[in-house]
Simulated scan of single mutants.
Amino acid sequence: MVILAGLYEIGGSSRFWQWLKADRPGWMGLLGAILLVLYGWVATWQPTAFGKTYAVYGGIFVVMSRARGWYFDGFRADRSDLLGGAILLLGLAVILFWPRS
């Protein structure tokens, strides 16, 4: 679910951004808005509490956004990008899997 939500959120945001910032046609902005609504809907399918769900989504989306930049924009990650992503994923693992008392 988190990957699907990430695809909707990042895809919708990038389409909306292109419409507003890169002078793309209006249908791109509309498509972006539709994808963002789908993201909001998919996010509600998660069984965890709102705060936990969105904390995890935030971290996953950072990593997915960097991957999107690499694939579509030719962005090349350096060591600090890779280390930051690894730290972020480690933090997500703590949030999700650390034993609760």
Rank of each mutant, 00 (worst) to 15 (best):
69 G>Q: 06
30 L>Q: 07
60 I>W: 09
54 Y>M: 13
32 G>V: 01
36 L>P: 00
50 F>Q: 09
100 R>P: 07
45 W>Y: 13
44 T>E: 12
13 S>Y: 08
75 F>S: 06
37 V>R: 01
52 K>V: 07
16 F>P: 00
30 L>C: 11
55 A>W: 06
95 I>A: 02
30 L>S: 11
99 P>I: 06
73 D>P: 05
20 L>A: 07
24 R>W: 05
12 G>H: 00
85 G>T: 06
64 M>C: 02
42 V>I: 15
24 R>Q: 13
81 D>Q: 05
5 A>E: 04
72 F>A: 14
52 K>A: 12
9 E>F: 09
14 S>Q: 12
84 G>V: 03
88 L>K: 03
89 L>D: 01
76 R>K: 08
1 M>E: 14
36 L>C: 02
43 A>Q: 13
61 F>A: 13
70 W>Y: 08
29 G>Y: 03
64 M>L: 14
53 T>R: 09
98 W>T: 04
58 G>P: 01
9 E>I: 00
97 F>Y: 06
77 A>L: 13
54 Y>I: 08
92 L>G: 01
69 G>T: 01
60 I>N: 03
22 A>Q: 11
45 W>K: 12
69 G>S: 07
87 I>C: 15
60 I>V: 14
38 L>Q: 05
72 F>R: 12
53 T>P: 03
6 G>K: 01
14 S>Y: 11
78 D>V: 06
100 R>W: 04
93 A>T: 10
41 W>R: 05
75 F>C: 02
66 R>D: 00
72 F>I: 12
84 G>K: 11
16 F>N: 11
67 A>M: 12
48 T>C: 02
96 L>Y: 04
59 G>C: 03
54 Y>D: 06
99 P>A: 12
19 W>N: 05
77 A>M: 15
37 V>W: 07
6 G>A: 10
5 A>V: 00
12 G>P: 00
